[in-house]
Simulated assay, not measured.
Amino acid sequence: MAAFNDYLKSLREQKALDIGTVAKRIGVHRHTQSNYEGHRDPPIDYLVDFAEVVGVSFAEILKKRLDYSKANKEAAKKAISSLNTVNSTDNTVSDNSLKYKTSSELLQVKLGELSHTAVPMDSTIYIDTCNKNVTPGAMYGFLNPMTGCYFAAKLVLTDAQLKLVFDNAKRKDAEFNIEGGSNELHYVLKTLGLLGRIIKAELIF
């Protein structure tokens, strides 16, 4: 894991950022940041935020983590190959091709994963990335950080649980226990790749 820790350190240094600055932006203690660059295995929610701070795709950091892991070489190679394959398929919208409507600041993307039954596969969805409040019955767009593909789901939030509702026989709903309040909820949604609320969706033939 030391090689991966060194990789994180090199990404920070390439951006000319000191440990304290990165720690503050991510919301961790300076000592914690130092440990993640030294010997400690950083959690996924931290890596999501770190990728954003240093301007590197989360998928790229995941590839490095797999490359430097103690996993069986064949398994790691297969996982990395899978990430590369998914990122190059036609149903994935690359970061360079994302379109913003300047008038309404909507993000326009194409769904590449099975989603809620109300939004068919291959639909083009328009997302208000500024609206990330969990509203009952509203549909939200997500970017799967593991595959690089977009999907849509409804969110149900209670005092102790967050649920992604797909209402789809081919895709099970996902449930997450929220024990740390709004701070933990924020990290769960970020790790899931929440982009924002879907304003409209259309299927172009």
Rank of each mutant, 00 (worst) to 15 (best):
G141K: 13
G141D: 06
G141R: 10
F142Y: 11
F142A: 03
F142V: 11
L143Y: 00
L143P: 01
L143K: 13
N144C: 09
N144A: 12
N144F: 02
N144R: 08
N144M: 04
P145F: 02
P145T: 03
M146A: 14
M146S: 14
M146H: 13
T147L: 08
T147Y: 04
G148F: 01
G148D: 04
G148M: 01
C149F: 05
C149V: 00
C149S: 12
C149L: 06
Y150Q: 03
F151N: 05
F151D: 02
F151Q: 05
A152I: 06
A152Y: 02
A152K: 02
A152E: 03
A153D: 07
A153T: 08
A153G: 12
K154W: 07
K154I: 06
K154N: 07
K154R: 15
L155A: 14
L155P: 02
L155V: 11
V156T: 14
V156G: 00
V156L: 10
V156M: 00
T158F: 08
T158V: 04
T158R: 12
T158Q: 09
T158W: 03
T158S: 15
T158K: 06
D159T: 13
D159C: 03
D159F: 02
D159L: 10
D159S: 08
A160K: 07
A160Q: 08
A160F: 00
A160H: 06
Q161E: 14
K163Q: 11
K163T: 14
K163F: 04
L164N: 04
L164W: 01
L164D: 02
V165Y: 10
F166V: 08
F166T: 07
D167W: 01
D167N: 15
D167L: 11
N168P: 09
N168R: 12
N168W: 12
A169E: 15
A169D: 13
A169Y: 13
K170S: 14
K170V: 07
K170W: 00
K170R: 14
K170G: 03
K170P: 00
R171C: 05
R171L: 10
R171N: 05
R171P: 04
K172R: 11
K172D: 10
K172G: 05
K172I: 02
K172W: 01
A174E: 12
A174G: 00
A174S: 08
A174H: 04
E175R: 12
E175L: 13
E175K: 09
E175H: 08
F176H: 15
F176C: 10
F176V: 01
F176I: 05
N177E: 10
